[in-house]
Write a protein that binds this DNA or RNA. Structure first.
Lengths: 331, 331
DNA sequence: AACGAGTGCGCAAACGGTTGCGGTGGAAAA
DNA sequence: TTTTCCACCGCAACCGTTTGCGCACTCGTT
């Protein structure tokens, strides 16, 4: 009733399990006839190698861990997709874990990956993660850890992301070039370094352009709903902005909902530009202008860096992901 | 440099590995002092049990497999989230695999799950899956398989989904009750049984209401883009519908894009109602009316059925997921 | 005839943790 | 004093697969 093992095949053919093992992988020590017989019996019995036993014996799990802060619909699905494709192409399997944006969850997930013996770990850190010491148990044992997108820049771990400061600046500059001078900024959780860096790029560009940085025109939100609420407040200000920079698709949704609810004409009364995975800005008419920040590309590059590390190839500390501006309608 | 094992602890304390093993799990045969010492040393050395070894020895992987057709942003992220939460709460880990909507991919994924020794498998089948024999290797060895959402109804496997026929009918009926009589229908890949059933419910309700089923008003699309194209064609018909039923969020996006592109007023010129996970219909103003089909609920119920099977509790063959109508604006 | 070089296969250990069984030593019961 | 009993711990086997080593046997070469 249990599964077929090499021992079963060996017993049936009156040979040694070691011979079966070698025959199944065409070892030159084994005669062609024996190889034939073994393979035939294995086929007939429907033999499937026990990966647990193999992993255990080789002290290799063929497992890659992926820890994401949350399973939102906007960015991580495409990242996961790209990573899984690559991981599978390399003959590995992927374990996806989410930390619920908490440090505790991230630490637990890391421990699980450790206990399962993952051979590499890809992480987009939680909002609470400043201290990254929980990854050191892994790196000390030679298990590579790569941070992507939501990162904390410690020299110990290679990071994969866009140049957030520059990219945010470029989007703001784009709005400026189109004549907008009162540019509001919407950012994710203020604890996230990705939020800090994008806000930094936004503020720096405003200053470089000689524009004022108005705190009333800047808000942080970690969900579409709160972004909508904050946006509604901005729309009630006596001194209203004429444009909005949104650092993500998730915030864009809330912003659009707020604008549509108030009947704000876009881009007539309010221009919008954002950083996006590429789908969401096209939901509305006219389409929203965005800087394309491809989740699939981030995933592909992160996986690539990881496998280079697994193969002991040198990898750069910073791995920039390209972005490109997609200008739509009159914005 | 390698990881700490029970043997290391045993050597350090001049005791037997078996004593260490028992001490770590408070076996009554071991004295309190020994337990203390062992635990202290384990703590100091940062001992982490090797789950591979444990899985191997116990012939239990503590792994659950999840196979989805594709990593789209609309439905599966919420399903995955719910499943992972439950799986983790049970002390298991989740392996997420996607089949790229191909039978081959699904078969490969199943084989991988088999080789890894998963203790249960959750599947949303690919568009190409009619024959489900690849799952039998697992069920024959007592590994439960549960199908959800995109299902094929074979008596062998419990299924978790909404009552697609009835739900689609209800949405159509809702449009009818609001006075619409020319109701277009948008469905996913025609090979999917979920598409067939929802279309069946749509057509049956039209007939029950004495309305004509017009083939020109029915289209199938497996992406937002093609849905948009097909919708644009419908909008060019001489005899235009006054309402649309969309069977999913993904199609809704394409439909909305087409309507917005043509300047069709919603719901004035065209009423829309759909089956949705609940977020997408609120992207626009006015919000789109929808039948709420919660991905999280589907995931939670599917996981629940699976764990009941793992515990040898009896489970029903059909496991219905509840839906509820969310009526918005004037539609 | 003796030697060398291969060919084909078996033996046994190992990976880390668990567990049935058995043994020792000391205290209590007979 | 002998027997019984229990608390505490060690021994060894086991899970399935792999692999270094070595043995037996066959050929071809001097």
């Amino acid at each position: 009733m249990g599964r077929i093992t090499v021992k079963d095949i060996a017993r049936l053919l009156n040979i040694n399990p070691s011979t079966v093992s070698r025959a199944l992988k065409d070892h030159p020590d084994i005669s062609k006839e024996t190889i034939e017989k073994v393979k035939q019996v294995a086929e007939e019995l429907g033999y499937e190698p026990n990966l647990q036993a193999i992993s255990f014996r080789n002290r290799k799990s063929r497992l890659i861990g992926l820890i994401i802060p949350d399973m939102n619909m906007y960015f991580f699905p495409s990242v996961i997709k790209a990573i899984e494709d690559r991981v599978r192409a390399e003959g590995y399997n992927l374990l996806v874990l989410h930390s619920n944006n908490s440090l505790r969850g991230e630490q637990n997930n890391t421990k699980i990956c450790d206990r399962l013996g993952v051979e590499g770990l890809l992480v987009s850190v939680s909002a609470e993660s400043e201290n990254l010491s929980h990854f050191e148990e892994l790196t000390e044992r030679g298990v590579p850890v790569v941070l992507f997108d939501r990162i904390v820049d410690r020299r110990d771990f290679p990071i994969v992301c866009i140049d957030d400061v520059q990219v945010a600046g470029k989007v703001v500059k784009h709005l400026y070039d189109r004549g907008f001078r009162k540019i509001c900024g919407a950012f994710d959780d203020p604890h996230l370094s990705i939020s800090k860096r994008r806000r930094q790029g936004y503020e720096k560009m405003l200053q470089d352009l000689g524009l004022e940085v108005k705190p009333e025109w800047i808000f942080h939100a970690d969900s579409s709903e709160t972004a909508g609420e904050k946006m509604a407040e901005v729309l009630d200000l006596p001194d209203q902005p004429d444009a909005i920079f949104s650092m993500s698709d998730q915030l864009l949704v809330g912003i659009m909902q707020a604008c549509l609810a108030k009947g704000v004409e876009i881009p007539g009364e309010m221009a919008i530009a954002c950083i996006s995975n590429g789908l969401v800005p096209n939901f509305w008419k006219p389409h929203i202008t965005y800087m394309h920040h491809s989740g699939e590309e981030v995933g592909a590059i992160a996986a690539n860096v990881l496998f280079n590390m697994i193969r002991n190839n040198p990898v750069p500390h910073m791995n920039w992901v390209e972005t490109n501006m997609v200008v739509q309608s009159s914005t």
